[in-house]
Design a protein around this nucleic acid. Structure first.
Lengths: 354, 354
DNA sequence: ATTAGCACTCAAAGAGATAGAGTGCTAACA
DNA sequence: TGTTAGCACTCTATCTCTTTGAGTGCTAAT
């Protein structure tokens, strides 16, 4: 059995129609509504072939056909037309302009809301990975006689802070000079570079004056570890998915929503595809269709993910989750758009102003 | 028709049973399983009376009875027995001990997760209101040549920070002395007190040296406004609710989940009851049953809320949302417990150490 | 190669029929 | 006078049976 142009066109139409209706597509429907100039019987024969080749499936004998995962895969890889965002689509992105001077978390959050509202699927984003961030400054700010704030600023603009108790007998001036020592030792290092050795070095440098603050140093080591490990995940539009008939039973809906609460699992689906994988795409866009996903719950869903960058360094990923019957061209176009906007925004925020 | 002790006991039993089973309760069930020493016929008569009095309802003629909102109200106000937390219940609270040195948001978040896990309903908490917080310190920390961080610390330990661009020609020393001016002027004031007048005063004091930093001052005014307005809301265990047959259709589930996304609406249900209201209770615990709730979507749900304090000042509220058929005694006991734990924790964090 | 025609299949929707849980009422009882 | 046994009645949930209609696969004619 070989794949000719007519078969491709018919498959394309079937998938387009099924994406719209979520109902199995029959030969008569195709023959009538699309003008192939062929009778339903001919279409029927072609459909039987396509099924044999694995691109279509039949829920039961007397139903129409629905695309298989393999069908969707072919569709995504070589059938579908790129979707051009319309003026009206683009105007929906308007809100982005207001983001300008915010913090990075806010931007990411806003982007996830926008993405879910634009696509009507569920959006998932990671906050930037900070392993490779460089420390811009470390500050120890006295709050009152007994406590101070440790503040950590990286070049990615993300800040971490923590309140610590100070040992008795430590005054503001003392804290201030320790703060200077810290800044001097740590500024410019990336988080990856700050090893136990480096901390020990600071400890030695402290020997002379700052024995009292040893506990504070431990705290600092701790929050650096925290930041290093931390990648937050935002999801948005979880309830969107409940609009699709695919999720029209409470059990399935519940499983899905609980899955979204499981940050590790969500982080996993955001992983980019490797070269081995079917979903691999060098544009940074990964599409995983149905059973191409590892997770049980995702077997009937598709996930489209993309990178976002600052300059040429990958900072994090964003994506959407929807039923396998997903409007791939449109969704991919929108993800690309959001990703591009994020790139530009973050670039302005962290590179240009340096 | 008057309410005698026997009627009260029967009503009590019916509600207890209905809370367990979610199935209408028939006279035979009560006569058989609870030992009133009465026949089903007698129970039947009493039930007819209770229905006439408005405490029970019948879904249809040949079904058993279910409690009405009025029935639940009587139950909560004067029928139900206080639930004593068991040792095993209490051991579930164990995780709290780990909270000790965290930030306030973390604590609140943790508390909401714990509350939802313990009750199996949906938990809702507000972060502390900061209107009345006093500013402990304001700091302007230079990050690089072009930008600085504004950091605001209140006595409630909550910190707000924002990165601002600095005008050209401003050096670290300059920023530092401005920072000192700010601290001097603002420390000790509560957020409520910081009016436009106060800001103008600072502006005047700046006249001499700091014209360059006027834009930064505006930013500071802005973030103070932000903090003043800001009460965040955490929800947790939203999917718990899907386990209850009351929410066993996708449409209803969806409405509920969307409701939870609407922060203003959720803030509203957390409002304490006024003296006028049925749900009023001076212990700080408010119970709103079914139609006692203003919100459409809550007409078939109950909400139990409580205050949490630091010292004797109300800081925020916590609560749970569940079906009207809710295990009131147990849930109330658990909310009280969590609230007490929060109080203690926050007290340790903000009062003792001062 | 395409198509008209027809027999066949199967899920979904509708129509009874049945079972069972529960009620209300009446009459008998202590 | 309060309680109970008994019975007719009601109503839902469930099961089975039938009907409907969409869609297929195959065959024979074009």
């Amino acid at each position: 059995m070989d794949m000719n142009e007519r078969k491709r066109k018919i498959l394309h139409s079937i998938i387009d129609e099924y994406i719209k209706s979520a109902e199995p597509i029959g030969s008569r429907h195709i023959a009538k509504n699309l003008d192939f100039g062929l009778s339903s019987a001919t279409i029927r024969n072609e459909m039987a072939d396509l099924e044999e080749m694995g691109y279509l499936e039949q829920p039961h004998t007397s139903a129409g056909r629905i695309p298989s995962d393999k069908g969707y895969r072919l569709y995504v890889d070589s059938l579908m037309n790129d979707y051009e965002l319309t003026v009206s689509d683009l105007s929906d992105f308007g809100g982005v302009l207001e983001w300008k001077m915010g913090q990075i978390d806010k931007i990411i959050k806003r982007a996830s809301v926008l993405l879910s509202e634009l696509t009507h699927y569920t959006a998932v984003l990671t906050t930037p990975e900070m392993r490779r961030g460089a420390i811009k400054t470390v500050e120890l700010v006295p709050v009152d006689s007994a406590s101070a704030l440790i503040i950590l600023v990286t070049n990615e603009g993300v800040m971490k802070h923590k309140r610590v108790l100070l040992p008795a007998g430590v005054d503001g001036e003392f804290v201030h000079s320790f703060s200077n020592l810290l800044r001097e030792k740590l500024s410019g290092s990336t988080l990856e570079e700050i090893s136990a050795a480096k901390i020990s070095e600071i400890r030695r440098a402290m020997q002379a004056h700052f024995e009292l603050l040893f506990p504070v140093l431990d705290f600092i080591a701790e929050i650096i570890d925290d930041v290093r490990a931390e990648t937050e995940i935002f999801t948005s539009g979880a309830t969107n998915i409940l609009n699709y008939p695919e999720f029209n039973d409470v059990h399935r809906a519940k499983e899905f929503l609980e899955f979204l609460d499981n940050k590790e699992a969500v982080a996993e689906i955001l992983q980019p595809a490797t070269g081995q994988e079917a979903g691999f795409s060098d544009g940074g866009i990964t599409v995983r269709i149905g059973k191409e996903n590892k997770q049980d719950i995702m077997q009937k869903s598709s996930v489209i993910t993309a990178n976002y960058y600052v300059g040429d360094q990958v900072m994090g990923r964003l994506g959407i989750i929807g039923p396998t019957r997903m409007d791939y061209p449109k969704t991919i176009a929108k993800i690309k758009q959001i990703s591009a906007m994020l790139n530009r925004l973050l670039y302005d925020l962290y590179i240009e102003e340096e």
